[in-house]
């Protein structure tokens, strides 16, 4: 009997990858969006299994509660989007097969030759206070730059929507 976390990992990995395949293969945009919802949720669960609880919740909050909502909003407001033909048929099999096999071989090679940095799992450490300290001490510059970029985006969005 394998460990519970192993079983859970395979269940969530299956959900993530399975729905990701539906996202790219379905011809209905709305089905893509809903499958993306499940896939992103699977990723959040995988983060949880890695004990990255803050990351998992941020995944849910930002990607599902924010980006996916915007995406579906866009789909809803675009008329006749479901009637539009979406090309999911493959046009050039041979180059695609060549490149994907190449990437697959390289990834497998990297996976097996890299000396992975292994650490023993840390039990129930409070992640958020450490993330907060790290963000405001060693990573304060990227943090501030990110907030300025977001502020600029906000001001820009208001400029565009005012129409003057």
């Amino acid at each position: 009997m394998p460990e519970l976390t192993t079983i859970l990992f395979y269940i969530f990995a299956f959900i993530t990858v399975g729905f990701a395949i539906i996202v790219v293969s379905t011809k209905n945009v709305m089905y893509s969006a809903v499958s993306l919802f499940m896939s992103l949720f699977g990723i959040a669960a995988l983060f949880l299994l890695l004990r990255a609880d803050f990351l998992a919740l941020t995944q849910v909050m930002v990607y599902i509660g924010g980006i996916l909502v915007l995406l579906i909003f866009g789909i809803m407001l675009t008329t006749k989007i479901t009637d539009a033909e979406i090309k999911t048929n493959n046009l050039s099999y041979i180059p695609a097969a060549f490149f994907t096999t190449g990437i697959f071989v390289i990834l497998i090679f990297v996976l097996y030759t890299t000396k992975w940095n292994q650490k023993t799992p840390i039990q129930n450490e409070e992640t958020i206070s450490q993330i907060g300290k790290a963000l405001l001490s060693s990573y304060v510059l990227p943090f501030e730059i990110a907030s300025i970029v977001l502020l600029v985006a906000l001001v820009g969005a208001i400029m565009f929507s005012r129409k003057k």
């Binding site: 849910v60 909050m61 992640t127 958020i128």
Partner: peptide
Amino acid sequence: LNLGLFYFFAITSL
């Protein structure tokens, strides 16, 4: 959870 309140806001946004 250590992140109880954050969890609540994240989940209800679903």
